[in-house]
Design a protein around this nucleic acid. Structure first.
Lengths: 318, 318
DNA sequence: CTGAAAGCGCTTACAG
DNA sequence: CTGAAAGCGCTTACAG
């Protein structure tokens, strides 16, 4: 028993002869270890839960793709769950309500706040992704959102724009994207008045399109727009084009997330591209060695200049 | 032991008093059953592998979303794997090389052929998705591809088009989309000549865009195009617009798959929409009760008429 | 280097 | 209706 186990698990101290006999038997019998039994004995499963709002949202599809690639490279498998933005499901995921069959959780919450995180009881390793600042008691991984937003707006100023609007949800000081927009424009003595701020109800294309309708009606229009997501940006562009405006000639547009559609849209979309491969690797590593203790991890990003901001292609990498 | 197990598993024959005492102890101790141990004892895991080429491809992201929703409704969990179109990985998935920890496999192959399927050794329940005809020895689920292609082309004829091109891979009689295109046009006495067939190397937007360049140069252009995927269609539209052509006024375009971006593109995209929710439910049911034996399952689809074919909106459902 | 044995935490005939 | 026990198929101290 012991010896077979040693051979199967690649343990070194087995005589060559014995190893060979075991391997031959394994081959003849077509033996494959029962991983459930192994998991029970070892107390680990090699399974990590990836919990996202919806896979159909391109950002999360891309993220999941990177996570799966990173997991494969690390010998892990991912059980994927969707919350559909439901608070109950996010709380359930937080507590690891899949039973003990997973080793850890990578969660991208949309409704949870700091209090929810701090009230957590489960000790299952947890990594938080996403757009907010989380308590120090938990491991999280994100880009430097403020710096990225500043770079996006600075790029618009660099192309000669002065009236830069912002479109998205949660447009206040708690939002790093809003803060970056505000600070950069203020430093450049450009307006940040309320008629340049277009609060939306969601982050989808429809929200962008309805923002476009509001913008088109303005007597003094912005000459550039920073959108908090690519989906908003693509909807906005569509709305502007419907109204007969040209992007970027009349209004330049910059998005955020670098979803695949932005590379194929017309015009192609200038955007902030988070390093998703890095997010994936770091998140899974953090879940795997949870004894390291909680830490706030920062990953890279880049500004990808495409047609929607009048760029002639090229990438600015900070 | 037995009684606790009965209570936890909701078995009926437990006296009310005993049940209450057990439940109280469960609550006090915060007991949660170890699912790995349960799996070992029961011989099932409640885990199904979903194997797709890439999650970043919108069709598969949407499919995965539906699969996850269906799995949740059935009390199953999905371990998602990507093949990236690699033949080795598809073969590995076919043999269930995740160990015995899954109850079945839903696989969407891109490179496997009938012989590969028939040479399969593993007896793990398997369901095949996708575009080809599979042997009767295996369970598969798909739409009636020929009927769907015919409906797409008929729709173009209905809007007054006569020169209907086809763009995609594998344009021959083994391809139901090509067959539907060919048969429908022939029956309507419309041309199916080779200058209306644009074979591409892949099914992505770039392939559509390069097809557009070829089409634009023609002296006698088609007045409509049937694309075998939405991604090709969106790239094609982009290429046509670049060349100064209008869609649908100059050329109508119909795609296939109903990816989310086709609802937000400019123009919005007419397409064949497979009933993905049905695909998901049927696939998981087939995996769950594999004793039913292999069967070829057919699911519904609809032609969604949008702007790219000059429709004024609306859905035609066969 | 290898055998015999206990243990991982459940489920489920088997008695009663 | 409920207890005592075997078994699911591994891993891993413990001897030797």
């Amino acid at each position: 028993m012991r010896t077979v186990s040693n051979v199967v698990n690649g343990y070194v101290h087995v005589s060559a002869g014995t190893r060979e006999r075991v391997e031959q038997a394994v081959a003849e019998l077509g033996y494959r270890p029962n991983l459930v039994a192994r998991n029970l004995a070892r107390g680990r499963t090699g399974l990590v839960a990836l919990v996202v709002p919806q896979l159909e949202m391109p950002y999360f599809a891309s993220l999941a793709q990177q996570m799966l690639d990173a997991a494969e490279a690390m010998g892990l498998h991912l059980v994927v769950e969707q919350t559909h933005g439901s608070r109950e499901r996010e709380l359930a995921a937080l507590e690891g309500s899949f039973g003990q069959r997973i080793d850890g959780i990578v969660l991208s919450p949309t409704t949870l706040d700091r209090d929810d995180i701090e009230a957590r009881r489960s000790t299952l390793p947890l990594v938080l992704l996403g757009d907010r600042d989380w308590p120090d008691s938990v491991t999280s991984v994100a880009i430097d959102r403020l710096a990225a937003a500043c770079a996006a707006v600075e790029h618009l100023l660099d192309t000669g724009r002065r009236r830069v609007a912002i479109v998205g949800t949660n447009l206040n000081a708690s939002n790093a994207r809003w803060q970056g927009w505000h600070d950069t424009l203020t430093a450049a003595r450009c307006p940040v008045s309320s008629d340049l701020q277009f609060e939306t109800t969601g982050i989808s294309g429809d929200d962008g399109e309805s923002a476009a309708r509001r913008i088109v009606e303005l007597q003094e229009r912005p000459d550039a727009v920073f959108c908090v997501t690519d989906w908003i940006a693509l909807g906005l562009i569509r709305g502007l084009q419907r109204a007969g405006l040209d992007v970027p000639d009349d209004i330049a547009v910059v998005g955020h997330d670098d979803i695949p559609y932005g590379r194929a849209s017309n015009p192609t979309l200038t955007t902030i591209s988070p390093n998703r491969a890095e997010i994936a690797t770091i998140a899974l590593q953090a879940v795997s060695d949870a004894q390291e203790g909680p830490q706030r991890q920062t990953v890279g990003w880049s500004l990808v200049v495409r047609e929607s901001s009048a760029g002639h292609g090229g990438v600015a990498n900070p």
